[in-house]
Simulated assay, not measured.
Amino acid sequence: MSDIPRLVAWRRELLQVHERLRLALLAALEAARDGADAADASRDLLLYCHGFCLALDSHHRGEDALLFPALVEQYPEAARVVSMLRQDHDMIASLLTGLDRAVRSGDSSRLLAGHLEGLAAIMESHFRFEERELEPLLDKLELDAEAAAVFGPL
């Protein structure tokens, strides 16, 4: 495999994992909206949230541990953007904790949908910012790592 396809693949990998996370969040939101009662919504969301929350957390951990240090090392001018993205990761982790707590406590499907809608808004804003700011750098990034380690197993 030549270097060029691997380098460009980092951008494609980021876009693909973001799309899969968007779809996973949509499935969780539909489960909350369709829940006839809190017990149904909670049971369904325990499954959806477990998968979605783990995937999103794994995605952010991989970026924090592998992608962001490589970006800052190769492109020091990206340090401000990386710092902002890390702050987003912390905020999203807090929202995921709140969602998990709401699911486990049996909150109503209306409240669970509210948690998910708030998370969706923040997540979409974060993804768009990340894609806009990092795509040009990812096309040239040299990083010797497995895509699943960098962006999560999705």
Rank of each mutant, 00 (worst) to 15 (best):
D44I: 01
F129G: 05
D139R: 14
L54K: 13
F52Y: 11
A148F: 09
D40P: 01
E63M: 03
L7C: 10
V81S: 00
I4N: 12
R132P: 01
W10E: 03
D100F: 10
A65M: 09
S58A: 14
L14H: 00
E135G: 02
L99P: 00
F151D: 08
L119H: 00
G51Y: 08
D107F: 12
G152W: 00
Y75T: 09
A28H: 01
L119P: 00
E124H: 12
P5S: 09
L7P: 03
I92L: 12
H115T: 01
M1S: 15
A93C: 02
D100V: 10
A36I: 14
F52C: 03
D88H: 09
V150I: 07
D100Y: 05
L66K: 05
R11H: 11
D90M: 10
E142A: 14
S83A: 15
L67N: 01
L26D: 06
A55D: 11
M123D: 04
F129S: 13
A102R: 01
L66W: 04
G98K: 09
L54Y: 14
Y48F: 14
A27M: 02
L7R: 15
M1W: 13
A36S: 14
G98Q: 11
A93Y: 01
D34Y: 05
H50L: 15
D88A: 04
L143S: 03
V72C: 04
A27R: 06
R43W: 10
V150A: 00
L119W: 00
L7A: 15
D37G: 13
C53R: 08
E30A: 08
E133K: 05
M1E: 12
E13I: 01
I4G: 08
L99H: 02
E130N: 00
E131H: 06
D3F: 14
E117F: 06
R6L: 14
E135L: 10
S94M: 07
F127D: 12
L14G: 00
F52P: 01
H115R: 03
M123R: 06
L138A: 04
M123N: 08
D139E: 14
L95W: 09
E135H: 10
C49Y: 08
G106I: 09
G118P: 01
E131W: 04
D37M: 06
